[in-house]
């Protein structure tokens, strides 16, 4: 996102006004076109209808249990994927021989379109949350893994030599040198991997579940309820934006040394 350079608070307010303006314009055109019959609301619904539907869900409370399930799956997929990705990334980056041997297999696995695995995971892990979690993990893992690997390999040789001369052990190097360096890369991947965790959860629910936002969307689609489909997407988008905002804040604090 481009920052308002040197225009202080006034610049930031102008920027937000523009950002809101663009969104309002798109929604306005959409609403007007649908009302004027230029586009068929059966296929694309109307922003006002969608907003009303989201409002109903929130007020009646029917959306919360579904949202909670989706977020639980996404969070589990995210945490497990990040932990595995960071661990494997570190290990392989510090063991170049092993990484050379495994390299083609990692590429092979990563090249696999993860969505086709969803039916298999449903078969293996059932209709509950774990089939969705595992699908999310397969998405999150590779993003975090490649970024961690790159982050560790990317460390300036001089920083490592200096730390070693100062008496750093291998675990000191990981903690004080490679870890913080990889963090930059891991963070740049967190925004992507949070999205992927939610994609994993929703796609899994869509293909077979009895709860979750993906299930809500799939039910709405089954009855040609376009408004319901769009309302489900809107809820997901809002959640992802809020989570992303939190991650940005955390990132800014952890990487505050990069001025």
């Amino acid at each position: 996102m481009p920052e308002a350079r040197g225009r202080g608070r006034g610049g930031a307010v102008t920027l937000i006004a523009w950002q809101v303006g663009v969104g309002a314009a798109v929604l306005g055109i959409w609403q007007a076109a649908a009302s004027a019959g230029l586009i068929d609301p059966f296929f694309v619904s109307r922003p006002a209808d969608i907003a009303r539907r989201v409002g109903q869900w929130v007020v009646s409370g029917t959306i919360w249990p579904h949202l909670a399930v989706t977020l639980e799956e996404a969070l589990l997929a995210f945490v497990i994927g990040v932990v595995l990705g960071v661990a494997c990334g570190f290990t392989l980056a510090r063991l170049p021989r092993v990484s050379q041997v495994l390299n083609p297999y990692i590429r092979l696995l990563n090249a696999l379109p993860r969505v086709v695995l969803a039916p298999i995971f449903l078969l293996w892990f059932g209709l509950g949350i774990w089939s969705k979690v595992v699908l999310g993990v397969t998405l999150v893992f590779f993003v975090v893994f490649f970024n961690t690997y790159q982050g560790v390999r990317d460390v300036d040789r001089v920083l490592v030599d200096n730390a070693r001369m100062l008496g750093a052990s291998e675990s000191d190097l990981i903690r004080h040198v490679f870890g913080p360096s990889a963090l930059t890369w891991i963070f740049s991947s967190l925004h992507t991997s949070i999205g992927f965790a939610i994609v994993g959860a929703v796609v899994g629910e869509y293909l077979g579940a009895s709860r979750g936002i993906g299930y809500v969307i799939s039910q709405a689609q089954g009855t040609f309820d376009t408004t319901g489909v769009f309302a489900g997407m809107a809820v997901l988008s809002i959640v992802v934006v809020i989570v992303g905002y939190g991650v940005s804040k955390l990132e800014r604090w952890l990487l505050r040394w990069k001025t």
Partner: peptide, 10 residues
């Protein structure tokens, strides 16, 4: 070292 070898995050 000739180059900067301080850890930038500390």
């Amino acid at each position: 070292f000739q180059q900067d070898a301080l850890l930038p995050w500390k």
